[in-house]
Amino acid sequence: MADSANAPKPSSSVKLVLLGEAAVGKSSLVLRFVNNDFQENKEPTIGAAFLTQKCNLPSRTIKFEIWDTAGQERFASLAPMYYRNAQAALVVYDLTKPTSLIKAKHWVAELQRQASPGIVIALVGNKLDLTNDSESGQGDAEGAEGEESGDARKVSTDEAKSYAEEENLLFFETSAKTGHNVSEVFTAIANAIPETSLKSTRGPGVSNAVGRGGDEQRVNLNGPREAAKEGCAC
């Protein structure tokens, strides 16, 4: 296998869904990953949005088909439509809002109960830029009590991390605003998808896929899935 470095890498599509309370930064994380961009006052997602982006691994290229779902409660009943047959999920909470972690735990439980058995789930605490950990980018294990110093963190790294370990989830703290840890989340998910659940899709130029700046396709999803596919790069 080591001698095949120059051969075109196999390419696989992975369906990934984002779930979490409204305003935790799901769309901002996707925008940072797909376009390396951040918009300060992003409009709430209606229904869901569909985007794609490639992630280059040493042995293969993963093409993420990303379903970014709306966080408002009125759209919650649509979620199963988007996580059905998903191979991966990002469950996002806001480090400054403990209730968003409670909601994230509900989503994790629902995915474990109803999504595909082998689904890879990442628990992501977003808005690290609002905490005192933003300089180093490292979550402080004691990080729940920083109000005197202007730290907006309300969910400690330890609490979320130990929950993630109990439930066998990947765990990251990110900032969509600064980009900290965003591509790392998607790379970790790509690496965690079992080979057996990857369907290879061959296409020219697959080995030239780059980690950013690619295929953004926003769709207001009440239309057929095929409509979202036009413009895909592979």
Rank of each mutant, 00 (worst) to 15 (best):
M1T: 08
A2H: 13
D3Y: 11
S4A: 15
P8L: 10
P10T: 11
L19D: 00
A22V: 05
A22T: 09
K26F: 07
S27A: 12
F33N: 06
N35K: 15
D37C: 12
Q39M: 14
N41P: 00
I46H: 03
I46M: 10
A49E: 15
K54C: 15
C55R: 10
C55L: 12
L57G: 05
P58L: 10
T61C: 07
I62T: 06
E65L: 10
R74H: 04
R74E: 05
F75R: 01
S77N: 10
S77Y: 05
Y82V: 03
Y83M: 09
A86D: 08
A89H: 02
D94G: 03
L95M: 07
T96G: 05
T96Q: 07
P98R: 07
T99C: 10
I102V: 13
I102K: 15
I102Y: 11
V108S: 08
V108H: 09
Q114E: 13
I119M: 13
L123W: 07
N126Y: 07
K127T: 00
L128K: 06
L130F: 09
L130K: 12
T131I: 04
T131C: 01
S134G: 00
S136L: 07
G137C: 01
Q138S: 11
Q138G: 06
G143F: 05
S149Y: 15
A152C: 11
Y163I: 09
A164G: 02
A164P: 04
E166W: 07
L169G: 02
L170Q: 06
F172R: 03
A176I: 04
H180W: 06
N181I: 05
S183V: 07
S183K: 10
E184W: 01
E184I: 00
I189R: 06
A190P: 04
N191R: 15
P194W: 05
E195M: 09
L198C: 08
N208K: 15
R212C: 08
D215C: 14
E216W: 09
E216N: 12
R218T: 08
R218W: 01
N222W: 14
P224L: 15
G231W: 02
A233P: 12
C234L: 13
